[in-house]
C-alpha cells in the first residue's frame, strides 16, 4: 500500500510541476490514525500530504462540481467507485472528460474507522479497479463478484406491506435531515435541490415522519437509475440509516424490468429512466 502512496506522490509531483493539472484531489491524514479527509494539493512541495491507506473512504469525484470551469485539468485519485462517479457526471454533462486527469488506483477495500472491520460499502463493491483512468498506479486487483447484491432488498420484500411500512417509518423517524446523503452523492447534481426550493412547496422544512418520508423516497427515486452503488450515502449518514436498501430496490427492479444494468461503468449506456424501448414491459393496458 505504501508503494502506491509513494507512486501517487511521485505522479502528483510530476503532474503539478509540469502544469498538466491545476491541483490534485486526494486524501490527507486527519488528527487520528483512523481519519482521512479529502485534500486539494496545488503546490508540488506539498504532495507528501497525500496518503493512501486503509481509511481513504471518501469519494472524490463530486468535488469537481465546485469547479465547473477549471483553468487547468483537475487531477483526481480514482478507485472503482470514484471512476464510476466520474463517468456518471460526464454522462450527465456535469463534467467534461478533458477537464480531469484521472489517477487510477486499484482498491482492495477500506476499513470502517469505528470498528476497523472492512467497510460495508467496500465489502459490497463489485468494481474495485477504476473503469476509466489516465494513469494506473500499481496493478489491478481481483474483482469480487457480488451474488448477494440484492439480498437485503429481498429480505424486506418478503415482509408484509405493513411490516415494510413500519420498518421504513422507523427509519424515516430517525432521519435528522442533515442532507449528508444528498450532498455526498455523485448522482445528486441538480444545481438547486428540490428540498431547497421550499417556497415551491415540494417539501416542508419541518422534521416529522411525513416530510422525512417524502425526502427519503424522493431522494432514492431521484438517484434510482443513476446510483453507482458507492454506498457513500449510507456511510456518511450520522444516524446510520440503511439507505442502500432503498437505492438497491430501484436497481433491482431496473434489472428485472429493463435488463442488466450498472450505472457509471461507461458513458454510453443510458440510464434506465432517461430512455425507453417501445417494447418495454406493459402493465398499464
Amino acid at each position: 500500500m505504501s508503494d502506491i502512496q509513494q507512486e501517487l506522490r511521485k505522479t502528483a509531483r510530476e503532474l503539478l510541476e509540469s502544469g498538466e493539472v491545476g491541483y490534485i484531489i486526494g486524501w490527507g491524514k486527519g488528527r487520528f490514525a483512523n481519519q482521512t479527509h479529502p485534500i486539494f494539493v496545488k503546490d508540488p512541495a506539498k504532495v507528501d500530504e497525500l496518503v493512501w491507506d486503509d481509511y481513504c473512504l471518501s469519494t472524490l469525484a463530486k468535488y469537481t462540481q465546485d469547479d465547473k470551469y477549471p483553468e487547468k485539468k483537475i487531477g483526481i485519485c480514482v478507485r472503482g467507485c470514484d471512476s464510476r462517479a466520474v463517468n456518471r457526471l460526464i454522462q450527465d454533462h456535469q463534467l467534461k472528460r478533458e477537464d480531469v486527469y484521472l489517477i487510477g488506483i486499484p482498491c482492495s477495500g477500506k476499513l470502517d474507522p469505528e470498528t476497523n472491520e472492512p467497510a460495508k460499502k467496500c465489502v459490497e463493491c463489485a468494481h474495485r479497479n477504476p473503469v476509466v483512468y489516465d494513469v494506473l498506479l500499481g496493478s489491478p486487483v481481483e474483482e469480487v463478484p457480488q451474488p448477494e447484491r440484492f439480498k437485503e432488498v429481498e429480505e424486506l420484500e418478503a415482509m408484509t406491506p405493513d411490516e415494510r411500512y413500519n420498518y421504513w417509518a422507523d427509519v424515516y423517524d430517525k432521519c435528522i435531515r442533515c442532507y449528508a446523503c444528498r450532498n455526498v452523492c455523485p448522482a445528486c447534481n441538480c444545481r438547486e435541490c428540490y428540498t431547497d426550493q421550499y417556497r415551491v412547496g415540494w417539501q416542508g422544512k419541518q422534521n416529522n415522519r411525513a416530510e422525512n418520508q417524502i425526502f427519503g423516497i424522493t431522494r432514492a427515486y431521484h438517484v434510482g437509475d443513476r446510483c453507482i452503488e458507492c454506498g457513500e450515502c449510507q456511510r456518511v449518514c450520522p444516524m446510520g440509516l440503511p439507505l442502500m436498501k432503498l437505492n438497491r430496490k430501484m436497481l433491482k427492479d431496473i434489472n428485472n424490468l429493463f435488463g442488466a444494468y450498472e450505472a457509471g461503468l461507461d458513458t454510453e449506456t443510458k440510464p434506465a429512466l432517461g430512455h425507453y424501448e417501445t417494447n418495454d414491459v406493459e402493465e398499464f393496458m
Binding site: 479529502p38 486539494f40 442533515c178 444528498r182 456518511v236
Partner: peptide, 9 residues
C-alpha cells in the same frame, strides 16, 4: 473548506 460537503451533520 473545499472538502466540506455542505451537509448539516
Amino acid at each position: 473548506y473545499q472538502a466540506c460537503i455542505g451537509c448539516g451533520t
